[in-house]
Amino acid sequence: MKHGGDGLVFGGGGPDQSVTRAVVLPFRKSVEISVKSLKVRFFRNLITALSLALAVSFVTFVFVTTDTAQGLFESGKPALLDMLRHAGYDVSPGVTAVGGGPKERWIVALSLLVCAVGIVNAQLMAVTERFREIGTMKCLGALDQFILRLFLLEAAMQGVAGSFLGAIFGGLAAVLTGLIRYGSAAATHLSWSAAGLSVLEATGIGLALSLAGVLYPAIVAARMRPVEAMRVEE
């Protein structure tokens, strides 16, 4: 066998080297792999997504409840204002918008924080479980960024699905509560665009949370040395 440029690892040279030496993972393939990984660990991913959905639904509930109150407040009808005052909102003259106090904001922030910690925990476990898979991929030539991308993609899909479901659920719950509390006026005065915006906003928060939660575990995974794949632990 002759071994010219082909047999030599770094033989050849020339301007096309950067092209021939590229290691790539097309985006479509990354998505395909991520979807497969999500499907295989469906139950565990469902639980992670569910915890996210819960936090997001709570956030949406708070947002849309405020939207409902705002709608009633803007109607300016004394009877409705009275109901709002009863419900604990500050509707004294001079106030231009009703909303939750700082306490409510703290509760929302805390619920998001708890959720983020939960996601980091779940994702770290997922990474540990997949050490061998990641190590193997690296032995096959995967770059750190491929691993990072796969984890981020998985988290993004999980985040969008979980958050959106949670947001819809939370929004519906808030509207229903409004109907029970204030009667049909709640629905007629509610600005649907504001409610829709709240749902989208909460979904966005959920997605950001999911990505932030996976970042550290994904970096741990991406930096892992391929020798780990060789390690035998039964």
Binding site: V9, V40, R132, T136, K138, C139, L143, M230
Partner: peptide
């Protein structure tokens, strides 16, 4: 560097492991 090592593992070396290490989801 990391990039060249990945390239080396990808093109020049094939690995076979004791525990097979096939990717389970594929």
């Amino acid at each position: 560097d990391a990039f060249e090592l990945a390239w080396l593992r990808n093109r020049k070396i094939g690995y076979i492991f004791q525990t097979f290490n096939l990717i389970q989801v594929m």
